[in-house]
Amino acid sequence: MIPYGKQDISQQDIEAVIEVLQSDFLTQGPNVPAFENALTSNVGAKHALAMNSATSALHAACLALGLGKGDRLWTTPVTFVASANAGLYCGAKIDFVDIDPETYNMCPKQLEKKLIEAQLKGTLPKVLVPVHLCGQSCDMRAIQHLCMEYDVKIIEDASHAIGGSYLGGPIGNCAYSDITVFSFHPVKIVTTGEGGAALTNDDQLAEKMALYRGHGITRDQNMMTEPSHGSWYYQQIELGYNYRMTDIQAALGISQMHRLSEFVSKRHQIALRYNVLLEGLPVEVPFQLDDTYSGLHLYVIRLKLDDIQRSHKHIFEGLREKGIGVNVHYIPVHLQPHYSAMGFQLGDFPESEKYYSEAISLPMYPNLSEDDQDRVIEVLTSLLVSK
């Protein structure tokens, strides 16, 4: 089986992890802050808070922005459920903004329309979570302009997008948002095995997220309610969580970050080759927004179903049967039973639903060989053009 995504672990990565296993620190040690420094140095943000998953980072980010019961969080339907669930964890109400049919990201025009309507109804969101699907940045300048007008905080869900850029700046620099979140799951661009991070330029938000990450506990005398009892003393001043990243994970992340540019460059080479190999077939290849450089976590094609005369399911399962580990990213969140029970239904977000009916993620990872890529196209072609 050729998988849709796969980690690339080098001997250097292995040695970095072994070094930690042989050290005095397996959980909270020097590698965690070193990994955070690697992230801030790479993207230019002031603070990075490494966590045990991107979901944890999203939750901590929502908490730091004060999202709570009675508030609203909006995101895109075309994302993993965590982007919306983070708001539910805080007791907030969730809604969605439909996608742009070219970029598959949150559509600024749809956002503007929905904000105007929400202002009239008194239902404006407190937090917006645009998702950089496949690694390509949303049109953050347009989104930020609207959010400033309506006093909405922004969390960029850049789980797919480390190594990418927007308007000449690295994704993650928080130039257009309050907080940016990365994922380091094994199929992502760089991995820590499992993990995530929240980045911000705001000192207070960083301080709050650090508290939520570590049980709400502090050893900082300036934050305590009474003088310290001694060097052992700490206080829990918030209800926090155990969202910390281990030193083992961080060591792998540091090693992987050395190859970030190489990973993304290889992904672009693979994507360009896919673009050529797919010419003439009844599919749409990914669109690139001007002034962006995608991290290319995913390579998603859309089937021209009217030309194929076969179903989405037929093509998908035909690829799987021939050992091509394709996937679909994603089932629109509003169609999940948990969200349908809240009142969402088919037809609410037509562009997202149309995308879902046509999208297939082809294998995309740095060490995908040309032979394997040729095999993907061979099988796909046979399914698309056979009578």
Rank of each mutant, 00 (worst) to 15 (best):
V333F: 02
H145E: 05
N85G: 04
L383P: 01
I162R: 13
S357C: 11
H268N: 01
Q269K: 13
Q309A: 13
S311A: 09
G169R: 15
S231C: 08
V376E: 01
R375V: 00
S41N: 15
S137I: 09
Y365Q: 03
K153P: 00
V276H: 03
I189Q: 13
L368F: 02
G44A: 04
I179K: 07
T246Q: 06
Q373I: 10
I99N: 09
V181M: 04
D348T: 07
S255W: 09
Q336R: 11
L211R: 09
A197H: 06
Y339S: 05
G91Q: 13
A161K: 13
G168E: 08
G193R: 14
N37Y: 08
T381C: 12
G347S: 02
S382N: 15
D374G: 04
P186Q: 05
P30A: 02
L199S: 04
A48G: 01
Y150Q: 02
N275M: 08
S183C: 12
K93E: 15
L205K: 14
A210S: 15
H229L: 13
Y212G: 01
A34T: 13
D307I: 06
V187I: 14
T225C: 09
P101W: 06
H215Q: 06
S177V: 09
I237M: 10
I315E: 00
V20K: 03
A60Y: 03
Y365C: 01
T246C: 11
K113D: 06
V333R: 01
K109A: 04
G295Q: 10
V127E: 09
L146F: 10
A38R: 15
L199K: 07
D24W: 03
L21F: 13
L21S: 00
E117F: 02
P350T: 10
D157Y: 03
C138K: 03
A206C: 14
Q236K: 15
G323H: 09
H338L: 15
D13R: 08
T218H: 12
V328H: 10
G29N: 08
S357I: 08
I270T: 11
A38N: 11
E19Q: 15
P30N: 07
Y233I: 05
D372A: 04
D203W: 11
E207T: 06
T192Q: 04
A64C: 04
Q235G: 11
A175N: 06
E102C: 07
I171E: 05
E15D: 15
G323Y: 13
Q256K: 11
V17G: 02
Y293R: 14
L296V: 10
I189M: 04
H297Y: 13
M245Q: 14
S10C: 03
M140A: 13
V131A: 01
M140G: 00
P3F: 07
E370I: 15
D178Y: 03
T200F: 11
V276M: 05
H268V: 01
L303S: 07
G168R: 01
E351K: 13
I2Q: 05
I155C: 02
E36K: 04
I18H: 11
E207I: 00
M224N: 03
C90W: 07
F349P: 01
C107Q: 08
R267G: 01
G91K: 07
A210E: 10
A210M: 10
D157I: 02
P363T: 10
L120A: 15
T218I: 05
E238Q: 14
